[in-house]
């Protein structure tokens, strides 16, 4: 369980984006965060992952401090290194038990093609497979279904 207590996050301009947030995220559950544009959803996820420093407050996992080693993170925008194939990208994540091709039966990606040739939706799918391959206890997905077709989103 992730416990967030008194979390406050602001940007350089002293604009407080998250103010004294209290939140419990339970194990084996999927939690969705909904809000207006600019409400601080991405900031919250970045803070939980450790990419944004908090002003104060605590975030713990099962009552203890945690590290990036237990989280896989899918950012809003998915960038890829130009000139490598989808398979080469996935091979960076070491998980001998993960069957890329079985997962790809679901996503139907041309894994042996250069990523530059992928559409935006295909890139999102590839990033999702990358996150799944990391197989970590916590997954933070920022807009995971954005730009995906309806069938894949389901």
């Amino acid at each position: 369980m992730i416990t967030i207590k008194n979390l406050t996050v602001s940007y350089k301009s002293n604009k407080r984006v998250i103010d004294n947030l209290e939140l419990l995220l339970h194990e084996n559950h999927i939690h969705g965060i909904v809000g207006l544009n600019g409400a601080g959803k991405t900031t919250l996820l970045n803070t939980i992952y450790g990419l944004k420093k908090k002003d104060w407050g605590t975030i713990t996992w099962n009552g203890q401090k945690y590290s990036k080693q237990v989280i896989s993170f899918l950012p809003t925008e998915n960038y890829f290194y130009s000139g490598i194939t989808g398979r080469e990208y996935l091979n960076l994540f070491k998980n001998p038990f993960f069957r890329e091709d079985s997962w790809n039966d679901l996503f139907l990606l041309p894994l042996d093609k250069i990523i530059d040739e992928y559409s935006t939706g295909m890139k999102k799918k590839l990033a999702l497979i990358g996150v799944l391959k990391q197989d970590k206890p916590l997954m933070i997905l920022d807009e995971p279904f954005d730009r995906l077709d309806i069938e894949t989103g389901k």
């Binding site: 990419l51 990036k68 080693q69 993170f73 950012p75 998915n78 960038y79 890829f80 290194y81 130009s82 990208y89 960076l92 994540f93 070491k94 990033a127 990358g130």
Partner: peptide
């Protein structure tokens, strides 16, 4: 010359 995306840096663990 090009900085790779963050997941590609973290993938090395």
């Amino acid at each position: 010359e090009y900085g790779e995306p963050l997941p590609m840096v973290l993938a090395f663990e």
